[in-house]
Structures are given as structure tokens and as C-alpha cells.
């Protein structure tokens, strides 16, 4: 797991930083980081690349399975997708007061996509960056040190907030659609303490509503970022052959545990989407 040329143990800080830096368009050329926390002149190419690749894979599978649906003899992938779909549909029927056409596909897609994006974390941490470095330096004459690649899109705030904000937009949409504009405003004024504490209510409800997308996005990001970092740290253990067994043991243990984490995180994101949208489309009580 050594980096291509120099021994990584020589400079672990640089190794970690290199792993946590995105392939970036529009970043500061010196630091390879965006200029500020929120900088819309920057695009992370690796995040987009892997998201689009995995979305493409998902679309291809969805198209294949959707076209060859078998009523009598469902095959392996169809069975698997049917189980997830049925579970999603049952959750929605339990929680949702009315039929909704978008929530099912939304939660279903979130679960599958997030799971696959998270799964990138289980690919050996140095494999794809090393490959990128080799391709970059061999075919494009780039300095190997300037080739950055982060392979886990969900360890990037942009991806998690892209989904969280989409869900937030739908929360607002459903609130206004079901309760009406005035009903939605009234919720801010009267919830949860009644009309006489309206100022408190506005603050409370606003915080409550903002917390929904924030927690959705940060939870997924935090889990995957920590997972990625831990893989990088375990990879650092290869500084001497004596600790190799320890590195292998820790790597296997964390990878196995991480299978659980990536599944649970995908599941939580999907389920909370249903729950939040279910709350949003409840009538005023």
C-alpha cells in the first residue's frame, strides 16, 4: 500500500492530506483547496465522476431489470430490488397519510445510490488514487504529486447536501401543497407552544425544519468521512513489516464493520426521507 514512489511513512501528514484532497477545477493552485468554505467557482471532478458513473450503473441495471420484469420467475437482481421496493413501499404506506407518487422512487433511489456511493469506501484506499496517478503521469505528463483523487462521493459535503437539500425542497413543497401557504406559516407561529408564544415558536420550528436537511447531510458525510479517514490511517500502518499483521487485521475488521455502516447510513437516509416527507404532508392537527 505504499504510494507510488516515496515511502509514505516518511510523511504521514502529507499522505493523509493527499488522500483528503479532491481532484478540483478552479481551486487555489497552491493549496489545491477552494478559496473559501462556500465557493461556487469550484467543481470537484472526482466526486462528479464517480457519482455519474455509479448513477449510470444504477440506471443501466434499473433499465435492464425494468425491461425484463418477470412475473413468474424473478431472477436474482429482480428479487433483490423487489424486496427493497416492497420494504420501501410498505414504510410509505405505514407513514404516509395519502398516496404520493414521488416519495417511493425518491427513497428507493436514495437507498440504492447512497449504498453504492458508500460502497466505494470498501475499495482499497490507495488503489484508485494510485491508478489515477499512474494514468495522469504516464498519459498526461502531470506531476504525480498534483494528481488528486477522492473516490467516495458521499464523504464530500456536496453530495450529501445535494440529496439533503432536494429532500428539503420537497418538504417545503409538500407542506405548502397539503397545508397551504397560510397553513404552513401558521405552523411556524403556533407549533409547538400555541399562538401566545409565537416568537418562540417561530424560532423553534425554524430550527426544527433547518435541522432536518442539516442532520441528513451531516450524518452521512460524517460517517463516510470518518470511515475513509480510518482506512487511510490503517493504510499508514504499513511503515514496517512487523506491523503488517496488525494492519491486515485492522483493515479487515474495519472493512467488515464498514459494510454495516454504509448499509445503515443508506437505510437511515432513505427512511428519514420518508418520515420527513410524511410529516410534511400531514394535515394540520
Amino acid at each position: 500500500m505504499a504510494e507510488s514512489s516515496e515511502p509514505i511513512s516518511a510523511n504521514p501528514v502529507e499522505y493523509i492530506q493527499h488522500h483528503l484532497t479532491n481532484w478540483c477545477l478552479g481551486c487555489n493552485p497552491k493549496t489545491d483547496e477552494p478559496a473559501s468554505l462556500i465557493d461556487f467557482s469550484v467543481i470537484f471532478v472526482d466526486t462528479i465522476l464517480f457519482s455519474v458513473l455509479i448513477a449510470g450503473l444504477l440506471m443501466w441495471v434499473a433499465y435492464k431489470v425494468g425491461k425484463n420484469l418477470s412475473l413468474e420467475k424473478p431472477g436474482g437482481i429482480q428479487n433483490f430490488l423487489e424486496a427493497i421496493l416492497e420494504f420501501t413501499d410498505r414504510q410509505i404506506k405505514d407513514i404516509f397519510p395519502r398516496r404520493s407518487r414521488i416519495v417511493g422512487p425518491l427513497a428507493f433511489t436514495i437507498f440504492l445510490w447512497v449504498f453504492l456511493l458508500n460502497f466505494m469506501d470498501l475499495i482499497p484506499v490507495d488503489l484508485l488514487p494510485w491508478l489515477a496517478r499512474w494514468i495522469g503521469s504516464t498519459f498526461f505528463g502531470a506531476d504525480p504529486h498534483d494528481v488528486y483523487l477522492r473516490v467516495v462521493p458521499t464523504a464530500n459535503l456536496d453530495t450529501t447536501f445535494a440529496m439533503a437539500l432536494s429532500v428539503f425542497a420537497l418538504i417545503i413543497f409538500y407542506n405548502i401543497k397539503i397545508k397551504g401557504g397560510w397553513g404552513y406559516a401558521k405552523m411556524f407561529l403556533t407549533h409547538p407552544f400555541g399562538i401566545y408564544l409565537a416568537p418562540v415558536n417561530v424560532v423553534m420550528t425554524t430550527v426544527e425544519e433547518i435541522a432536518k436537511p442539516l442532520s441528513l447531510g451531516l450524518r452521512l458525510f460524517g460517517n463516510l468521512f470518518a470511515g475513509e479517514l480510518l482506512f487511510v490511517l490503517i493504510a499508514l500502518l504499513s511503515f514496517a513489516w512487523v506491523v503488517l499483521p496488525l494492519q491486515v487485521f485492522l483493515g479487515v475488521a474495519w472493512a467488515i464493520y464498514h459494510i454495516l455502516i454504509i448499509t445503515v447510513q443508506a437505510f437511515i437516509f432513505g427512511l428519514l426521507t420518508i418520515v420527513y416527507l410524511g410529516l410534511a404532508s400531514e394535515e394540520q392537527h
Binding site: P34, M59, L157
Partner: peptide, 21 residues
């Protein structure tokens, strides 16, 4: 950081949801 990638990801996400649906 939050960057223009966010917009890209929202578009990818929306297309994916539509397609899967």
C-alpha cells in the same frame, strides 16, 4: 467545502430519481 459540485450533484440526483421512477 460547499462548491458548484452541489449543483451538479443535485442535477445527477434528480435525473437518477426520474430515471429509476
Amino acid at each position: 467545502n460547499v462548491t458548484a459540485t452541489l449543483i451538479g450533484q443535485i442535477i445527477v440526483f434528480a435525473v437518477l430519481v426520474w430515471f429509476v421512477k
